[in-house]
């Protein structure tokens, strides 16, 4: 199962006009966090917030809807969100923390929860993990390089970045420039090459644009708490859903990309094993399902 275990898979978007305006796609992460905060399901959230530098996110503990909204939108570079989890619990005293993670971060979070070897009384304070789809991530300098060199756009003028339809899109106030996503290859960070997870298989709720129509997101609910919170947000009218498009540009596309990420990673993992390099995952010969995230 290349999409991991899930309860339901749908297209969804936030019904809030303000969120629609500033979010990356359907505004699911932003919308759900705001909803959970209002309903006191969480008392704060660790998000990739703004820093002093444009497009360079900084892990931030958001305690209000405004702070969550300030973190809306995708930044295609590293934001070590896990770093702020202990901070959120200790300094901010969160009892029910929300967090937005990309798959590798979801994995760090879940490992800490199952084996909190040196992490005291943090694991039980995580109330909601929203996992974001991720194909790969870029060091900040990589991002800067291909935006300026390939798209030829002054980095400071960029208003939105987006990946879709096989292209990397750069929006400025009066222009939209794109180049094939293939041209970003070679700029991604190395650690991504052994990653077997595109859809945050271990999150409470996973979301991302892949397989969804414009301005909508694909959403998978996975755990009991994830399913409950998502349903509550839908019932409250803050999230609207429609059935998942099963076709070529819907579920088929999501499955295809998740599978291809796994296949590429398995090739890299097997190769590393042959070279005697360390890797925490099993070789394809060592596991039943060669594409499982183990």
């Amino acid at each position: 199962m290349v999409l991991g275990t899930y309860k339901q898979i749908v297209h969804a978007r936030s019904t809030d006009k303000q969120i629609q305006k500033i979010s990356q796609d359907g505004g699911i992460a932003t919308g759900l966090l705001c909803f959970a905060l209002d309903e006191k399901i969480i008392d704060g959230a660790v998000v990739a917030g703004p820093s002093d530098e444009m497009w360079k996110p900084e892990p931030t503990v958001a305690l209000s809807s405004d702070e969550i909204l300030a973190a809306a939108g995708t930044k295609y570079t590293l934001s070590p969100n896990l770093w702020m989890v202990k901070e959120a619990v200790r300094q901010n005293g969160l009892e029910k923390a929300g967090i937005v993670t990309i798959p590798c971060q979801t994995m760090g979070l879940r490992k800490m929860q199952s084996y909190p070897i040196g992490v005291r009384f943090v694991a039980d304070k995580i109330a909601l993990d929203i996992g974001i789809f991720c194909t790969e991530n870029f060091p900040f300098e990589s991002l800067k390089t291909f935006i300026t060199a390939k798209a030829g756009v002054n980095f400071d003028l960029v208003e939105k970045m987006d990946i879709g339809k096989g292209k990397f899109w750069v929006h400025t106030a009066d222009d939209v420039i794109s180049f094939p996503i293939k041209e970003t290859h070679g700029y991604e960070q190395n650690g991504c090459k052994v990653c077997l997870d595109l859809v945050s298989e271990l999150s409470d709720i996973s979301t991302g644009s892949i397989g969804a129509p414009d301005n909508w997101s694909s959403v998978l609910t996975r755990t009991e708490p994830g399913e409950t919170i998502f349903s509550q947000a839908v019932d409250a009218g803050l999230i609207e859903t429609k059935p998942m498009d099963e076709g070529k540009f819907g579920l088929e596309m999501l499955t295809k990309l998740a599978k291809s990420k796994k296949e590429k990673a398995m090739k890299e993992i097997d190769q590393r094993k042959e070279l005697g390099l360390p890797v925490p995952y099993k070789a394809s010969s060592e596991k039943e399902d060669p594409l499982a995230n183990v």
């Binding site: 070590p80 969100n81 760090g108 960070q189 650690g191 390099l277 925490p280």
Partner: peptide, 9 residues
Amino acid sequence: QALCIGCGT
């Protein structure tokens, strides 16, 4: 070892 993904754990 080319394994870091910058998660912050």
